[in-house]
């Protein structure tokens, strides 16, 4: 039985699934254009990611193992699923778990081929997950402490923005975004441009259509992370979008202002500055709500 509310939900879902990759691709195009301008050159057209996608989709299909292909679909599917869960205003932790499912799937894809660069890339991707996952979960805990629920719906139900209570956690998303977008200084597992020691890391053995699908998953993931950032200012959401775009711009800026670091530095930075400061932020909320200064 399809009630109007279910129909609306389906409509929103389809809309999200269609619009998200378009917006994500466009944002990546803007990223490339902006990066080019930061480097004093003209850069590709903003729709370049779509050209790349269509071209890759129509390349000859070659691969090393059949099993490596399954993981691509799971990777993309998990990214889409986590976005849908966000749109449905579901449980934050579940969204993050689903995102992690996609991440693990990609790692397994890298492992599934006996190729040095893809395997080392996978090992490093695991470290990247180790670096950003705690920050994401801490953010979810932050949401919970402020709203009293892990449901995203509770964030929207709350009138005042979360940013005031969780400023440091919001800022830690610069690190999360940097890692997720494979930007300097954290582009250690598979850089966008391949001038690194691992060729293209765990993407080395993927080509054509499968690379295109991974690229598309990347677009969904970008939108997902930006969506989560938007939650820090959910009412009105447009301010949240602005906030997320600001952080996105900041990440691009940092990408161009620093060298790539090694995995040890990455873990040190994310666990100390990212997770560590997030914990302080949470601790402050504990103390303040204990003192009765903020409701929690």
């Amino acid at each position: 039985m399809i009630t109007p509310s279910i129909a609306l939900e389906i409509l929103v879902t389809v809309f999200a699934l269609v619009v998200a990759p378009l917006a994500g691709g466009l944002l990546f195009g803007i990223d490339r254009k902006l990066t080019a301008r930061l480097q004093n050159r003209i850069g590709p057209p903003i729709v370049q990611p779509f050209y790349d996608f269509i071209k890759l989709w129509n390349k000859d299909q070659i691969f090393a193992n059949r099993s490596q292909l399954i993981y691509v679909y799971v990777h993309l599917g998990a990214a889409m699923a986590s976005l849908v869960l966000l749109v449905w205003q579901q449980d934050m932790l579940v969204i993050l778990f689903t995102l992690a499912l996609g991440g693990i799937s990609l790692v397994l894809g890298g492992f599934s081929v006996r190729s040095p660069y893809s395997q080392i890339g996978s090992q490093r991707e695991l470290l990247q997950m180790l670096a950003y996952e705690p920050m994401l979960v801490l953010a979810a805990v932050g949401f919970y402490l402020v709203t009293g629920s892990f449901l995203v719906a509770a964030v929207f139900a709350r009138g005042t923005p979360l940013l005031f209570e969780l400023p440091v956690i919001a800022l830690s998303f610069v690190l999360v975004l940097g890692i997720k977008l494979r930007k300097s200084p954290f582009d250690i597992a598979a850089a966008g441009h391949a001038h690194q020691e691992l060729v293209r890391g765990l993407l080395t053995e993927y080509s054509g259509r499968y690379l295109a699908l991974i690229e598309m998953a990347h677009w969904y993931e970008l939108l997902l992370v930006l969506g989560i950032i938007s939650l820090f200012w959910a009412n009105p959401l447009v301010v949240g979008f602005g906030l997320s775009l600001l952080l996105y711009f900041l990440v691009i800026l940092i990408d161009n202002a620093v060298a790539r670091l090694t995995w040890t530095s990455m873990l040190k930075i994310t666990w100390s500055w990212g997770a560590g400061l997030s914990v302080l932020n949470l601790a402050a909320i504990y103390v303040l709500s204990y003192l009765g200064w903020i409701g929690g």
């Binding site: 930061l38 480097q39 850089a191 001038h195 690194q196 990408d255 202002a257 060298a259 790539r260």
Partner: peptide
């Protein structure tokens, strides 16, 4: 060298 440690914009500036 800048490129080798992933500092693309520095690479670009030197080459410009």
């Amino acid at each position: 060298l800048a490129d080798s440690f992933g500092f693309e914009s520095l690479f670009m500036q030197f080459w410009r």
